[in-house]
Every structure is written in C-alpha cells, then in structure tokens.
Deep mutational scan, measured.
Amino acid sequence: MLEGKVKWFNSEKGFGFIEVEGQDDVFVHFSAIQGEGFKTLEEGQAVSFEIVEGNRGPQAANVTKEA
C-alpha cells in the first residue's frame, strides 16, 4: 500500500488525483474508494491505496481514508 494526499477531487464528476511524494500524481475514480455511503475525498486528505494499470495508465485502487 502507498500513502498520499488528495490533490483535488471533483465529487460531481467522481474523480480526482492523489499526490505521492517522489512520484507522478495518481488518478482516482470514486468507485475505488472503500467504505459505505457517498464516496468522495477532500483536498489534502491523507489516503492509502494501491496502484493498478487502468485503460489510460496507472490509477488508484482500494483507496482508504486515513484517520
């Protein structure tokens, strides 16, 4: 699992990017966010995740919000 911070997330469109120190930003789709209820992320929020190869390159999977 990697750790990063949410760079930005558009809850209307359901996607955004996660910043990872020393690496390129990683695309995140709302469907990759773990948990119940409305799936969104806040700018600057700490998250842990895995990287998988998507249709358009690397993207986040199994995203969990850090306490």
Results as ranks from 00 to 15, higher is better:
residue 26 V to D: 01
residue 36 E to H: 12
residue 18 I to K: 01
residue 41 L to F: 04
residue 17 F to H: 04
residue 2 L to H: 15
residue 62 N to L: 08
residue 7 K to Q: 04
residue 42 E to W: 10
residue 48 S to N: 12
residue 12 E to L: 15
residue 6 V to H: 01
residue 44 G to R: 07
residue 60 A to V: 02
residue 46 A to L: 14
residue 46 A to F: 13
residue 27 F to R: 05
residue 52 V to H: 14
residue 13 K to G: 06
residue 19 E to A: 14
residue 34 Q to H: 11
residue 45 Q to N: 11
residue 12 E to Q: 12
residue 28 V to G: 00
residue 33 I to P: 02
residue 27 F to W: 08
residue 48 S to C: 13
residue 40 T to L: 07
residue 46 A to S: 14
residue 43 E to A: 14
residue 22 G to S: 09
residue 39 K to A: 07
residue 42 E to C: 12
residue 66 E to N: 15
residue 1 M to C: 07
residue 62 N to K: 13
residue 20 V to P: 03
residue 53 E to R: 14
residue 49 F to C: 04
residue 26 V to S: 03
residue 45 Q to L: 05
residue 13 K to H: 09
residue 50 E to G: 08
residue 44 G to C: 04
residue 46 A to I: 12
residue 51 I to D: 02
residue 65 K to L: 12
residue 49 F to R: 01
residue 57 G to M: 05
residue 25 D to P: 06
residue 16 G to C: 03
residue 38 F to G: 09
residue 6 V to G: 00
residue 44 G to S: 07
residue 13 K to M: 09
residue 62 N to H: 12
residue 28 V to A: 04
residue 28 V to D: 01
residue 8 W to L: 05
residue 21 E to P: 13
residue 46 A to W: 11
residue 57 G to D: 03
residue 47 V to D: 00
residue 61 A to P: 01
residue 27 F to G: 03
residue 30 F to T: 07
residue 30 F to R: 13
residue 64 T to D: 08
residue 18 I to W: 00
residue 24 D to T: 10
residue 30 F to I: 09
residue 44 G to F: 02
residue 39 K to S: 08
residue 29 H to K: 05
residue 39 K to G: 07
residue 39 K to T: 06
residue 66 E to I: 14
residue 36 E to L: 11
residue 33 I to Q: 03
residue 41 L to K: 02
residue 58 P to R: 14
residue 19 E to M: 14
residue 40 T to S: 13
residue 3 E to N: 13
residue 29 H to S: 05
residue 34 Q to Y: 05
residue 9 F to R: 02
residue 14 G to C: 03
residue 13 K to I: 08
residue 55 N to R: 15
residue 29 H to T: 04
residue 55 N to T: 14
residue 60 A to T: 02
residue 61 A to V: 10
residue 41 L to R: 00
residue 29 H to I: 01
residue 48 S to E: 12
residue 26 V to Y: 04
residue 17 F to K: 10
residue 28 V to K: 01
residue 25 D to S: 05
residue 6 V to S: 01
residue 2 L to T: 14
residue 26 V to E: 02
residue 43 E to I: 12
residue 23 Q to H: 09
residue 37 G to E: 10
residue 49 F to N: 00
residue 10 N to V: 03
residue 45 Q to E: 13
residue 47 V to C: 08
residue 1 M to T: 06
residue 30 F to Q: 12
residue 31 S to L: 04
residue 19 E to P: 00
residue 15 F to Q: 05
residue 53 E to G: 08
residue 3 E to I: 15
residue 20 V to F: 05
residue 64 T to V: 15
residue 37 G to H: 09
residue 50 E to I: 11
residue 12 E to S: 15
residue 36 E to V: 11
residue 66 E to C: 14
residue 37 G to N: 10
residue 47 V to P: 00
residue 18 I to F: 02
residue 21 E to D: 10
residue 44 G to A: 06
residue 14 G to I: 01
residue 32 A to Y: 03
residue 51 I to N: 03
residue 35 G to A: 13
residue 47 V to W: 00
residue 20 V to R: 12
residue 43 E to T: 15
residue 21 E to T: 14
residue 1 M to D: 03
residue 8 W to N: 07
residue 23 Q to Y: 07
residue 12 E to Y: 15
residue 61 A to L: 09
residue 17 F to M: 08
residue 38 F to P: 09
residue 33 I to F: 06
residue 23 Q to M: 12
residue 14 G to D: 02
residue 18 I to R: 01
residue 20 V to T: 11
residue 57 G to E: 03
residue 60 A to M: 01
residue 51 I to W: 06
residue 19 E to D: 07
residue 66 E to K: 14
residue 12 E to A: 15
residue 35 G to I: 05
residue 51 I to C: 10
residue 50 E to F: 09
residue 37 G to Q: 08
residue 49 F to K: 03
residue 18 I to C: 00
residue 62 N to E: 07
residue 31 S to E: 06
residue 4 G to V: 00
residue 40 T to Y: 09
residue 15 F to T: 06
residue 7 K to Y: 01
residue 2 L to W: 13
residue 48 S to K: 14
residue 25 D to K: 02
residue 49 F to D: 01
residue 55 N to Y: 14
residue 25 D to M: 03
residue 4 G to R: 00
residue 7 K to I: 08
residue 29 H to P: 05
residue 55 N to S: 13
residue 4 G to K: 01
residue 66 E to S: 15
residue 55 N to F: 12
residue 6 V to P: 00
residue 44 G to P: 01
residue 15 F to R: 04
residue 64 T to S: 14
residue 42 E to H: 10
residue 59 Q to V: 14
residue 11 S to K: 15
residue 26 V to P: 01
residue 18 I to T: 02
residue 15 F to V: 07
residue 66 E to R: 14
residue 48 S to H: 11
residue 32 A to I: 00
residue 6 V to Y: 00
residue 22 G to P: 02
residue 38 F to V: 11
residue 11 S to T: 14
residue 14 G to T: 02
residue 47 V to L: 04
residue 19 E to Y: 06
residue 35 G to M: 10
residue 17 F to S: 06
residue 64 T to Q: 13
residue 24 D to E: 12
residue 34 Q to K: 15
residue 22 G to Y: 05
residue 55 N to V: 15
residue 2 L to M: 14
residue 36 E to Q: 12
residue 65 K to C: 13
residue 1 M to G: 11
residue 14 G to A: 03
residue 59 Q to G: 04
residue 31 S to F: 01
residue 41 L to E: 00
residue 8 W to R: 07
residue 44 G to V: 00
residue 12 E to V: 15
residue 62 N to M: 11
residue 40 T to W: 12
residue 58 P to W: 13
residue 41 L to V: 06
residue 34 Q to C: 15
residue 20 V to K: 06
residue 38 F to Q: 10
residue 64 T to Y: 12
residue 47 V to I: 06
residue 23 Q to G: 13
residue 59 Q to F: 12
residue 20 V to C: 12
residue 27 F to T: 03
residue 9 F to H: 01
residue 3 E to Q: 13
residue 65 K to R: 13
residue 20 V to A: 11
residue 20 V to E: 03
residue 59 Q to C: 12
residue 14 G to Y: 00
residue 8 W to I: 06
residue 63 V to S: 01
residue 10 N to C: 11
residue 3 E to H: 08
residue 57 G to C: 05
residue 58 P to Q: 10
residue 19 E to S: 14
residue 32 A to D: 10
residue 3 E to C: 11
residue 24 D to H: 12
residue 16 G to A: 02
residue 65 K to Y: 11
residue 33 I to L: 09
residue 39 K to H: 05
residue 27 F to Y: 09
residue 1 M to R: 10
residue 31 S to V: 01
residue 17 F to G: 03
residue 5 K to I: 10
residue 56 R to W: 06
residue 3 E to G: 09
residue 64 T to G: 07
residue 18 I to A: 01
residue 21 E to Q: 15
residue 56 R to K: 13
residue 58 P to D: 05
residue 37 G to S: 09
residue 31 S to W: 02
residue 5 K to F: 10
residue 63 V to T: 00
residue 67 A to F: 04
residue 54 G to S: 11
residue 40 T to A: 10
residue 5 K to T: 13
residue 58 P to Y: 11
residue 50 E to K: 13
residue 23 Q to N: 14
residue 52 V to M: 12
residue 30 F to L: 07
residue 1 M to P: 04
residue 15 F to N: 03
residue 59 Q to R: 15
residue 40 T to H: 10
residue 19 E to V: 08
residue 20 V to H: 08
residue 28 V to T: 04
residue 6 V to W: 00
residue 49 F to I: 02
residue 53 E to A: 10
residue 53 E to I: 08
residue 6 V to Q: 01
residue 25 D to W: 00
residue 25 D to Q: 05
residue 42 E to K: 15
residue 30 F to H: 10
residue 17 F to E: 05
residue 31 S to Y: 02
residue 9 F to G: 01
residue 57 G to R: 07
residue 65 K to N: 08
residue 39 K to F: 04
residue 48 S to W: 14
residue 21 E to C: 13
residue 42 E to Y: 15
residue 48 S to A: 13
residue 19 E to H: 12
residue 67 A to P: 07
residue 66 E to Q: 15
residue 64 T to M: 11
residue 8 W to E: 05
residue 53 E to T: 13
residue 15 F to C: 06
residue 5 K to G: 02
residue 32 A to R: 06
residue 22 G to I: 00
residue 44 G to T: 03
residue 57 G to V: 04
residue 54 G to W: 04
